[in-house]
Every structure is written in structure tokens, then in C-alpha cells.
């Protein structure tokens, strides 16, 4: 009895929280008269299916591919660079580790919107703007790397240093121990944090907007911002675009959510 009551309340809370998403989907299916009706209709009167049209007209295939490439690149670099650093910072507890962590976090004070100008000038001098997607990847890695390090460090610190020492006693080198002992144990945590980094980068906007000038290299968020311009009250189109954009993310997410939640909590549970 108590458990079904808890479930009931839980469902209501979750429903309330997810209402904006529901509203996005409903609005994507409404006609323009339906959209501005007051009182609003909670189910569309006539379903207007513009998904194909929006997808093609707004060249979403290209945009989504670019977003995917950029997010993928960011994730790879982040995992390669960040995992070792996170391990070391998790392994030692001293003042220098605190200083390093503090420094890492401090690089995150300014939002992308303010970092973009100096980066733009620097990249322009270095000729990186000729490969604009790479430029966005490099800039975005700096944005998510600290986040990756902090979260991965938390799950890596659950692995006792003794394991590593034991491996080294058995003749493995430090590097060998890292690759053969630590990484397999931390696989889940790294995977999960990697996914989060990927998703964050999939929604990146400011760097892509400023550094990519060719339309066919542009990302999906920038495509969405076309709807936010002055001559747009195309709410239906905007909601349809948003729905197309986030649905794959949501599906991947719902499929993986058990793994993600356990991945982040696993370390702590052991």
C-alpha cells in the first residue's frame, strides 16, 4: 500500500518535471491556429506532421552529422587526456593535488560566450579556422575536460592503490598497471562520464556559431538558432526541430539510463 502510494507520488513528480518535454512534442504536432489557441489544447486537434519537411528544409542531416562528429572528437580527446590525470589526482591526497584541482576548476569560470573572442583571435593567427570543426573541438575540450576530470576522479578514487601496487610487485610496470588493472576496473565510470561529455558537446552552441562560417560544416544548435531570429514566430517549426534534435539523445539515454545511473553510483556502492 505504502509502496504504491510512493510510486503514485513519484509518477506525479516525474510527470510534472517532464511536462516541458511533453509540451515540446505536442506543439510540434499542432497547427499554427492550434498553437496560439487560448485556452491551450493539451492534445493537438489535427495532427500536423511536418517532421520530414523540417528535417529536409533545415538540412538537419548535415547539421546532425557535424554535431555528431564534433561531440565524438571532443569525447575522444577528453577521455585520452583526462583519464590519466584523473587517476593521478585520485591516487594522491596532498596539497599539490588540491592546488591542481583548484586550477582545473578555475579555468571554468568564464562561459564560452566570453572565451570565444580570445580563442577566435588565437585560432585565427594559428590558422586553425581553416579547419573550423577541429577548432570547435579543441575549444570545447577545454570546456568539458575539467568536468570530466572531476567526475572521473570521483569514481577512480574508489579503486584502491593497493591493487596497482600488487600488480607492480608481480612485475608489471607503472604503465602496464595503469592499462591492465586500473582502466578495466574504471571502464564503467569512464564510459558514463564520456557519454555525459558527449551529450554536453552535442548541444554546444557558442563556439560553433562563431568559428564555423561555412553552412555545410555547421551544427544542429546553430541551425536551431535560425528560429530565434527576428522574423520567426514559427513555433511549430522550432518545436519540431527541437523534437527531431533531442529525440535520438533521449532514446539513447532512456536505453542507457540504468547503466548511466549505476555507472555513476557504482563506485560509491562498492
Amino acid at each position: 500500500m505504502k509502496r504504491s502510494l510512493l510510486l503514485g507520488i513519484g509518477l506525479v513528480i516525474t510527470g510534472l518535471y517532464l511536462f516541458p518535454l511533453y509540451w515540446m512534442y505536442v506543439s510540434a504536432l499542432k497547427s499554427s491556429q492550434d498553437l496560439f489557441a487560448y485556452p491551450p489544447h493539451f492534445l493537438p486537434h489535427h495532427i500536423v506532421w511536418t517532421v520530414g519537411q523540417v528535417f529536409v528544409q533545415h538540412e538537419m542531416a548535415t547539421y546532425l552529422t557535424n554535431s555528431f562528429l564534433i561531440a565524438g572528437g571532443v569525447t575522444v580527446i577528453c577521455v585520452v587526456l583526462g583519464t590519466g590525470c584523473a587517476r593521478v589526482l585520485a591516487r594522491y591526497r596532498n596539497r599539490w593535488v588540491d592546488v591542481a584541482l583548484f586550477a582545473v576548476l578555475m579555468t571554468q569560470v568564464l562561459p564560452s560566450s566570453l572565451m570565444v573572442m580570445p580563442l577566435f583571435v588565437g585560432f585565427s593567427e594559428a590558422g586553425l579556422l581553416r579547419t573550423p570543426r577541429l577548432a570547435v573541438i579543441l575549444a570545447q575540450v577545454a570546456k568539458v575536460l575539467p568536468f570530466y576530470i572531476v567526475l572521473t576522479r570521483a569514481s577512480l578514487s574508489q579503486i584502491p592503490a593497493e591493487l596497482e601496487l600488487a600488480a607492480m610487485v608481480d612485475g608489471a610496470s607503472r604503465i602496464g598497471a595503469f592499462f591492465r588493472i586500473i582502466l578495466p576496473l574504471a571502464r564503467n565510470g569512464i564510459l558514463v562520464t564520456g557519454i555525459l561529455v558527449f551529450l554536453q558537446s552535442f548541444g554546444e552552441y557558442v563556439y560553433a556559431r562563431s568559428m564555423i562560417s561555412q553552412d555545410d560544416l555547421q551544427t544542429a544548435t546553430v541551425g536551431l538558432s535560425a528560429f530565434l531570429g527576428p522574423n520567426t514566430s514559427d513555433w511549430n517549426g522550432m518545436m519540431t526541430y527541437s523534437a527531431i534534435y533531442v529525440t535520438p539523445i533521449l532514446i539513447v539515454f532512456v536505453l542507457l539510463q540504468r547503466r548511466i545511473v549505476s555507472g555513476l553510483t557504482a563506485g560509491a556502492l562498492k
Binding site: L7, Y17, M24, L224, S225, L228, M239, V246, L250, F253
Partner: peptide, 25 residues
């Protein structure tokens, strides 16, 4: 209670949404 961790997982949907999209919604 049944479904507790599934419901908790659903909340994460808010996190994976790009802020630009969330603002528009």
C-alpha cells in the same frame, strides 16, 4: 518502491537537453 530507479533515470532527460532548446521551450 517499484520503478524508483527508472523514474529517477527519467529526470536525467532534463540534463541532456541543450540549454538553447530548453530556453526556447
Amino acid at each position: 518502491f517499484p520503478g524508483a530507479s527508472t523514474l529517477r533515470g527519467l529526470f536525467l532527460a532534463g540534463w541532456v537537453m541543450p540549454a538553447l532548446v530548453v530556453g526556447a521551450i
